[in-house]
């Protein structure tokens, strides 16, 4: 394992910036991963997690799919985004979230836009030291300070950052980096202790075993879903800020003879999401709330055997009405008969 002084992190990021588009947490109005400015590493002092998750770097809020040119006939032109992104400071929950999106976007037909960015991207993780009160990652088998879903993992050990390679891509990155020193056994012990302390700070819990048993039997309990849906205002905060929500819409635009097709985030909380001209299967709010909870904790696991939630807690902390999914999941009324 390697290490680097926190005060030298800017030198390391600068090195990487020669080869990659480096993104790091910043707070220009909102905390998100933004193109690193070449100097600022003060985020090490204040950064808990981004509000806008790093999925934004791979599945952006909007992206052009292709240009539509018209001459004698139509010609479609795809401009592939081959940017080599290096995202510094990814939290373990968000790294796992990308691994979950990968599953869906690789299954069957491959989503080339997303997968191309993933292929060209490097995730440099940064272990948490102060999880939020809304975090419940540990209930989903995610360690807040450890990750196998990143390429390189950084952990805070006081004045220095401990650096571990995780993937071959990460190994190559570190091999080509200068200014790193070798970590000592004492450093590693320090990191281990810090990680354990962080793990214990995640106090919000859900019981995934119990949830699995209860979701399907509770599915048709309309009264229950109407009750939990009552205070939801049907905005898109919880889904747009969710690191695992990947649903999208496709839209064309044209002006002055130019046209292009785009895709943009979409959200199952919106009534228009499933609206067809003549009918809408999820017109009612409780059906949409039920869909949201079930997609993450029931349907996605039925298809891919993994829960589509990493316990990052954004949906709880950012919700305008404090609609708390952990409370909902702990009050599911029905249980399968033994």
């Amino acid at each position: 394992m390697k290490k680097i002084k926190k005060s030298d992190l800017n030198k390391l990021l600068s090195q990487w910036q020669q080869k990659y588009s480096v993104f790091a947490p910043s707070n220009h109005g909102v905390v998100k991963m933004t193109a690193w400015d070449g100097k600022d590493t003060t985020f090490l002092d204040w950064y808990r997690n981004t509000v806008v998750p790093p999925k934004n770097n791979f599945l952006p809020g909007m992206e052009k799919m292709f240009d539509i040119k018209k001459d004698a006939g139509y010609k479609l032109e795809v401009t592939a985004d081959d940017t080599k992104q290096l995202i510094f400071g990814v939290r373990p929950c968000d790294a796992r979230a990308l691994a979950l999106i990968d599953v869906n976007f690789k299954d069957g037909y491959e989503d080339t836009y997303y997968l191309n960015r993933r292929k060209n991207g490097l995730l440099v993780g940064l272990g948490c030291t102060s999880p939020c009160a809304s975090c419940f990652c540990t209930s989903l088998n995610i360690h807040p300070a450890e990750s196998q879903d990143v390429d390189v993992m950084f952990n805070d050990i006081g004045e220095e950052l401990l650096i571990a390679e995780v993937t071959d891509k990460g190994k190559e990155l570190l091999a080509a980096s200068s200014g790193l020193s070798d970590a000592t056994a004492a450093d590693e012990a320090k990191a281990k202790e810090a990680k354990e302390a962080t793990f214990k700070k995640v106090t919000r819990k859900i019981n995934t075993g119990e949830i699995k048993e209860r979701l399907m039997p509770s599915f048709e309990n309309e009264e229950y879903w109407k009750n939990v849906a009552a205070k939801c205002v049907s905005c898109g905060i919880c889904t747009f800020l969710c690191p695992t929500c990947y649903c999208f819409d496709i839209n064309d635009e044209q002006s002055k003879g130019e046209a292009a097709r785009f895709r943009n985030w979409d959200c199952c909380s919106f009534a228009v999401y499933t609206k067809m001209p003549m009918e809408n299967p999820r017109e009612e709010k409780w059906r949409r709330v039920r869909q949201k909870v079930n997609h993450k904790y029931n349907f996605f696991p039925m298809i891919y055997e993994q829960i589509a939630c990493t316990g990052c807690g954004r949906c709880i902390r950012q919700c305008p009405v404090n609609w708390d999914i952990t409370q909902v999941l702990s009050t599911l009324p029905e249980k399968a008969k033994a």
Binding site: I237, F240, L241, C267, P320
Partner: peptide
């Protein structure tokens, strides 16, 4: 321009 560049169209402003 700068402020609205951040907007993610979650429509929370409208919904509340």
């Amino acid at each position: 321009k700068q402020e609205f560049s951040r907007c993610i169209r979650c429509y929370a402003c409208r919904q509340v």
